[in-house]
């Protein structure tokens, strides 16, 4: 249960999340990939706090912010998907790529 072990777990979760985000067609599944990546940030933050700077609570505040960001990301994601569904009745990433250069 060393720092390296925790960071490896975080790296693994991050990679799985990245794979999910890149490979999935549906925006909703893409968001689940993002959630997994933020999950990795959670683990990394907690590990850094415990192994490097437990004296001050900054690490914990970072974890708190990461949890909040995850909630906000999900809320905004579903709002966007709802608006997209109403405008264009589609929820697959390919058809929603207007901003692409």
């Amino acid at each position: 249960m060393t720092l390296q072990a925790f960071l490896t777990l975080a790296a693994a979760l991050f990679a799985v999340g990245l794979y999910g985000a890149l490979s999935q067609q549906s925006i909703v599944m893409l968001m689940m990939g993002l959630e997994l990546m933020i999950n990795a940030v959670l683990v990394a933050g907690a590990a850094f706090w415990f192994y490097l700077a437990p004296a001050s609570a900054d690490g914990q505040v970072l974890v708190l912010v990461a949890v909040t960001v995850m909630a906000l990301e999900m809320a905004m994601g579903f709002a966007v998907v709802t608006a997209l569904m109403r405008a264009r009745d589609v929820d697959v990433t390919d058809d929603a790529g207007d901003l692409k250069g």
């Binding site: 415990f50 700077a53 437990p54 001050s56 609570a57 914990q60």
Partner: peptide, 19 residues
Amino acid sequence: WPERAGRPPGDPTRALGEA
């Protein structure tokens, strides 16, 4: 990785709350 700086407080929750 650098060595740990300081000891984890008795009650991390209280430390978080005060921070």
